[in-house]
């Protein structure tokens, strides 16, 4: 009986998403980050809760134009939003740590051009048809609209992914920001769109599909 109980508890624990700490190590200078958050947080609150050891000089947000945050000064950003990327300028090495349970990413891009984003996931998201570019994730548009993704790290510089040919970048890491270039607008991507069938092995030929 106890064995059954413990098995049930294990199954429940496995099914319920667990909050995992995500830590991004910032180097002195510019860092491209995207904190993993369940919901938007006021910048000051975010810095107190998740980056208390950081000496932030400036934060930049990009949405077609730039908005900045300077501690005890300018605040054009107001909140740190899940799935949004940011340039953090820090004067010394430090960590940004979050511990939220997140639903993953959900983007809606009306226009083409550059988007500064993050995966908002606690695990790596591969940039391929099994991960970020899974057709099931697209409620409008498709993967052909994504033509470039860049990652920046203070230690290794830029790495990029492109649809064809070899790419130095293959996955989006938790907590890091990414530049995504879209050739078209009207693209909506949501990680929660992936169906149960994506998690199960392919059905046998002639068998009814898994619903």
């Amino acid at each position: 009986m106890n064995l059954v109980k413990s098995m049930i508890v294990s199954l429940i624990l496995a099914a319920v998403p667990q909050a995992e700490a995500v830590t991004v190590n910032l180097s002195p200078g510019w860092n491209l980050v995207s904190p993993v958050l369940a919901q938007a947080k006021a910048v000051d609150q975010f810095l107190t809760d998740h980056a208390s050891g950081c000496s932030i000089t400036k934060i930049w947000e990009y949405s077609g134009g730039w908005a900045q945050y300077v501690p005890s000064g300018i605040n054009q950003i107001n909140t740190i939003k899940p799935g949004q990327g940011y340039w953090f300028l820090v004067s010394g090495a430090c960590d940004v740590t979050t511990n939220d349970t997140t639903p993953g990413y959900a983007y809606s891009f009306e226009s083409s051009g550059w988007k500064l984003i993050g995966s908002n996931s606690q695990a790596d998201v591969s940039i391929d048809s099994a991960g970020l570019l899974n057709p099931a994730n697209f409620s409008s548009g498709d993967a052909s609209g994504v033509i470039k993704i860049w990652e920046y790290s203070g230690s290794s510089g830029w790495k990029s992914w492109q649809p064809s040919g070899a790419s130095a970048l293959s996955a989006m890491r938790p907590g890091y920001g990414y530049w995504m270039l879209l050739s078209t607008g009207g693209i909506s991507l949501d990680s929660s769109n992936s169906s149960l069938a994506d998690l199960l092995p392919p059905v046998c030929p002639g068998c009814p599909p898994i619903q």
Binding site: S63, G64, F109, E110, S111, S112, G113, K115, S183, G185
Partner: peptide, 11 residues
């Protein structure tokens, strides 16, 4: 070639 336009509003 691929036309890249802005993101501040819809084209």
């Amino acid at each position: 070639v691929h036309q890249v336009t802005g993101t501040t509003g819809s084209s």
